[in-house]
């Protein structure tokens, strides 16, 4: 299994379902209700970036050689095992912001307490249950998908062949 989150921004309707699903998946009872009524409200981890009237859902890329892990002085940022996503342990986080500085994607952000940080953990708990990350599972248009890298590549190769054939036919 080598799956990654793939975003097709042209399908994003900006409905923010992914944001709500993200919050729910990280709540006590894994429901939207418990997320919005929590004693301590936590920010959702997925970010919707809006640029020239197009919306881009942005996640942590869970880099294989993650600079955020390298710079973290307290081992709050870690990858528990080879297969695991990059996970931030809030209890260990001292809010030094080093990871924010080195992250090439700008997806680590300050949490609602104004001190600690938060980021996408790829819903590792859901993955263990054999489910897709909540944002992908909840997306009503398939703008966010959790797909096998080999499948994605195969699809892309086929698409490029199609385009190549068309260009040959057109001369």
């Amino acid at each position: 299994m080598d799956k990654i989150l793939v975003v097709r921004s042209e399908r994003c309707m900006a409905c923010k379902t992914c944001v709500l699903e993200c919050a729910a998946a990280h709540s006590e009872e894994k429901t939207l209700e418990s997320a919005v009524n929590a004693e301590e409200i936590r920010f959702p981890r997925i970010i919707l970036e809006y640029e020239e009237s197009e919306t881009f859902p942005i996640h942590c890329r869970h880099c294989k050689d993650a600079p955020c892990i390298a710079v973290c002085p307290t081992q709050a940022m870690s990858r528990p095992n080879e297969e695991s996503p990059v996970i931030l342990n809030r209890d260990k986080c001292i809010g030094c912001n080093a990871c924010i500085i080195v992250c090439p994607f700008g997806v680590i952000k300050r949490d609602s307490d104004g001190k600690t940080l938060t980021k996408c953990d790829l819903c590792y708990e859901r993955l263990e249950e054999g489910k897709d990350p909540a944002c992908a599972a909840g997306c009503p248009t398939g703008a966010i998908k959790y797909v096998e890298v080999s499948e994605l590549n195969l699809e892309k190769r086929k698409e490029s062949i199609r385009k190549y054939k068309v260009s040959l036919e057109k001369g």
Binding site: M13, A14, C15, P140, T141
Partner: peptide, 25 residues
Amino acid sequence: PQCGFGTMGICCRICTMGPCRIDPF
């Protein structure tokens, strides 16, 4: 960004079997 389902009129909140949304794609 504002929700595209609302903008396009394909979000139905009329009963609580829903809310329902139609995928425009």
